[in-house]
Design a binder for these strands. Structure first.
Lengths: 181, 181
DNA sequence: CATCTCTATATCAATATGATAGTATCGATT
DNA sequence: AATCGATACTATCATATTGATATAGAGATG
C-alpha cells in the first residue's frame, strides 16, 4: 500500500493533519504494520488535494502553529473503495535481526547470543506498548488488529525463548541472568 | 539493513552473482524477511566493488549469459562484522492486509470477510513453501530462521481462525465452505 | 536563561522499488 | 518450423520513500 492510499484510508476514519497522520503511523495503532515519513506524507497530501480526493482547510490555532486539516471527498472515498477491492498482496516483513543472526553465524558467532537477548527485550517492550494501546476505547476492528499484533509479538517471543538454546550451546551463559536486572 | 549490508552478508555465506542474490531474497530462505530488487542490488555491488569490500570476477559460461561472481574481501568481512556489532533495530512490518481491514470497516464493511478469507489462503500457501524449504539441508541457524518464519505464519493463521468470527457476525456465511474446494 | 520536547509544515539527497530492456538457450505448443 | 513462455543474466530509469534537517513559537525542565 503506497502512502497516498494509506493517507486516504486514515482520512476515511476521520479528518487529520499531516502531522497527525505521521503520529498515527509512527506511534499510534498503525505503527506496528505501517510506516511513512513526512517526506512522503506531505507530498502525498498535496497530490491528493490537487487530484480532488481530499480537501484541505487551514486552521489557525492558539499558541500553536497553524494546522492544515485534510478531509476525504466523495471522490476520494470512491477511489479508496476501489483500491480496497483489489487484493491486498502479501505483507512485507524486513528483519535486520534475522539477517544479522544468519550473517553473525558466519562472521562473529559470539554475537548470536547477544542478538537474541536484545531481541527478546524488544519484544517485551513492544508487548507492553500494545497492551497499553488495548486499554483505550476502540472499534472492534482496531481491537482485532492490535490483538493481531500482540499475538505476533507473543509468538515471536515464545519461539525465541523455546528455541534459542539450540543456537548457543557452546557460548558462555549470560541469558539466564537477564531476570536479575 | 540497507541493500549494501545485505549483499555483504549474503556474500559472507558464499560467492554469488547479482542474479543469485536477487533469487535468494526473492524466492529463497531470505524471502520472508528481506527484499531487494535488481535496481538496488546491482548498484550496491558496484559500490561495494569500488570501495574494495568485494571483488568481482567475470565468468564466461557455456550456453548461458556471462556472469559476474562477487566475493567478500577481508576488508568487506571486517566492515560486515562492525555493522553486525551495532544493534539490529526493530523489524519493519508492512501489512496492506491489516490496513485494508481497518479501512474496509469504514468504507465497505462487506469486504472484511473476503479480505480475511484471502489472507488465510495466503498463510496456508506460505506455510507450505516454508515447510518445503525446511526439507533441504541447512545450517542450524538457517533452520532456526526458517522455523521462526513458520512459527509466525502459523501464529497468524491461528489468530485469524480463532478470531475472525468476531468481525463478521452480521455478514452472510461463506468462509465455512472454504474446505470444500 | 539554556536546552529539551512538542506542535507543525516543509524540503532534499540518498536510497529503493517495480517495471522494463536486451540477449540467449530450452522446452512446449501450435 | 514458428511462436510462446520460462529461465538465466546484466542493466537502467522514473517514481516512491526514507531519514535527516530547517524553521519557528510554546511550554517544561534544570
Amino acid at each position: 500500500m503506497d502512502v497516498r492510499t494509506l493517507c486516504l484510508g486514515i482520512l476515511s476514519l476521520g479528518d487529520a493533519s499531516g502531522y497527525e497522520i505521521r503520529k498515527m503511523v509512527a506511534e499510534g495503532s498503525f505503527s506496528f504494520f505501517s510506516e511513512a515519513s513526512y517526506g512522503s506524507i506531505y507530498p502525498a497530501l498535496t497530490k491528493l488535494t490537487s487530484d480532488g480526493l481530499v480537501t484541505c482547510e487551514e486552521l489557525s490555532q492558539d499558541k500553536r502553529p497553524d494546522k492544515k486539516v485534510y478531509s476525504l471527498t466523495d471522490q476520494g472515498r470512491n477511489v479508496l473503495t476501489e483500491k480496497l477491492s483489489q487484493g491486498a498482496g502479501p505483507d512485507k516483513h524486513r528483519s535486520a535481526f534475522l539477517a544479522a543472526l544468519l550473517f553473525a553465524e558466519a562472521v562473529s558467532p559470539e554475537r548470536v547470543r547477544s542478538l537474541i537477548e536484545e531481541r527478546i527485550k524488544q519484544h517485551v517492550s513492544k508487548i507492553e506498548r500494545l497492551n497499553g494501546l488495548l486499554e483505550e476505547e476502540m472499534s472492534p476492528v482496531s481491537h482485532f488488529v492490535i490483538s493481531y499484533g500482540l499475538a505476533m509479538q507473543n509468538a515471536a517471543l515464545d519461539y525465541l525463548e523455546a528455541n534459542y538454546s539450540t543456537l548457543i550451546q557452546d557460548t558462555p551463559a549470560v541469558l539466564e541472568r537477564a531476570d536479575q536486572t
